[in-house]
Amino acid sequence: MTDHDREPQAIRAEALESLLIEKGLLTADAIDEVIVRYSERVGPMNGARVVARAWIDPDFKQRLLEDGTSAINEFSFEGGRIEKLVVVENTEKVHNAVVCTLCSCYPWAVLGLPPRWYKDPQYRSRIVREPRTVLKEMGLDLPADLEIRIWDSSAEVRYMVLPQQPEHSLGKSEQELAQLVTRNSMVGVESL
């Protein structure tokens, strides 16, 4: 066991888990299924497929930017119902990044579960106030004349960033392109 497993909240979670299993409200199988689903099937590889298709198919890209919710239905992703998906495009003039300052809302169906930094107070407090500084600390040094748009997911709309396609990737297949797309680029804290 790691130290993390022995944190007080870990022990309390295990205590509650055992009580709920005894009451028939929870099963070990349900917990295993959650781990498999979010480790193997629901994750940023889904969003990467959406981005790769948008890069090679201008009609799809237009549909995606106009109505992201309908456009991603073409992929039949499982898990994490998205009421409304808005896809925002990074360009030569605008850079977008996503946050949820009040909790940790995130487009699960396309990006899976959010990374720890997205849920931590540092990102949630600072990205709306000093985005240029935070992005620079995270390795993304944007020119001062590039407009930064931050999308604070304060209701059930979910946001995903469509990153700019790197020039070196022109001509690659959709499958090859999907391999290049990272989670952080679709949250807007990385350029490709």
Partner: peptide, 17 residues
């Protein structure tokens, strides 16, 4: 912001529970 490299979906089983 502290970014963890190659972060897993869950760090421990209790989180998934």
């Amino acid at each position: 912001v502290v970014v963890e490299k190659d972060e897993p979906a869950f760090h421990s089983r209790w989180e998934a529970a």
